[in-house]
């Protein structure tokens, strides 16, 4: 299949019926594989890896902290892409997917912040420090809150989708700006990235492989949740339309 044909195949899911049918078929696999990889990754990580020589067993919180932080950012990126798709091509499923992803992103941000605080208390000696990474995550959390609040506040669904999409675009720019502004503002306590593609050495292999499994688990869980919640949003809108039709009919 050529790239153009593949792209066309993707746009077919803008049809809510097709989207629902397909996601319903693949959702059990996503739930199952998310559950399996999370159980395997966490059990492997918590019970079958050695303690770090400096951090002791607290190092194991990495299996929740890093994947959650990763997904918190990726959820916003996904909302950015789906918002753009909504603004350009006016596919309702896309706007609803953005709406469905936001609360998941909030939870991921909270998990990252909470696990970070729990780890920071014994390691840094403080629950919270105004470190650039921590601060920018808190700011990301505020952006999520504003986004969800705007969705909730507007009654007309199309207006809400338009306004939140623009807010998502503008917010992305400002979130990025804040990320580098806080870098300038305060020196960091947080260690550098544990994972990156261009570094020779990441965390040691014993920690690395279970971490990968956990990340895969979080990605799968996120996809499953977004599919599920988008389906719910589509159905909720259908019910609203049916009720409205009934009122007009009677």
């Amino acid at each position: 299949m050529s790239i153009a044909a593949k792209a066309n195949a993707l746009w077919a899911y803008a049809n809510p019926k097709k989207f629902l049918a397909t996601t319903e078929r693949v959702l059990p696999f996503f739930w199952a594989s998310a559950a399996i990889s999370l159980v395997v990754g966490l059990v492997w990580g918590f019970f079958f890896t050695p303690d770090d020589y400096k951090q002791g067993s607290t190092v194991k919180i990495i299996y929740l902290h890093v994947p959650a932080a990763l997904m918190a950012i990726n959820a916003w990126l996904m909302m950015l892409v789906t918002s753009l798709v909504w603004l350009v091509r006016r596919h309702h499923v896309s706007a609803l997917a953005a709406r469905a992803a936001a609360p998941v992103g909030i939870v991921m941000t909270l998990i990252a912040l909470a696990t970070g605080a729990i780890w920071g208390q014994p390691m840094w000696g403080t629950w919270w420090a105004w470190d650039p990474r921590l601060t920018s995550f808190l700011i990301l959390f505020l952006f999520y809150l504003g986004y969800v609040a705007l969705w909730e506040a507007i009654e007309n669904p199309d207006t809400a989708a338009d306004l939140t999409s623009v807010l998502c675009l503008v917010g992305s720019v400002f979130a990025l700006l804040s990320r580098y502004a806080v870098n300038f503002w305060n020196q960091g306590l947080h260690q550098g990235a544990s994972l990156s593609l261009d570094k020779e050495e990441n965390v040691a292999d014993v920690f690395f492989f279970p971490l990968l499994v956990c990340i895969a688990g979080f990605v799968l869980l996120f996809i499953a949740l977004v599919f599920y919640r988008t389906g719910t949003e589509i159905r909720a809108r259908r019910i609203k339309a049916l009720l409205a039709r009934e009122r007009v009919g009677s």
């Binding site: 700011i139 400002f174 806080v182």
Partner: peptide
């Protein structure tokens, strides 16, 4: 909505 957008300017 506005306060998070004020962060860079404030900093």
């Amino acid at each position: 909505l506005v306060l998070p957008l004020y962060v860079p300017t404030l900093i």
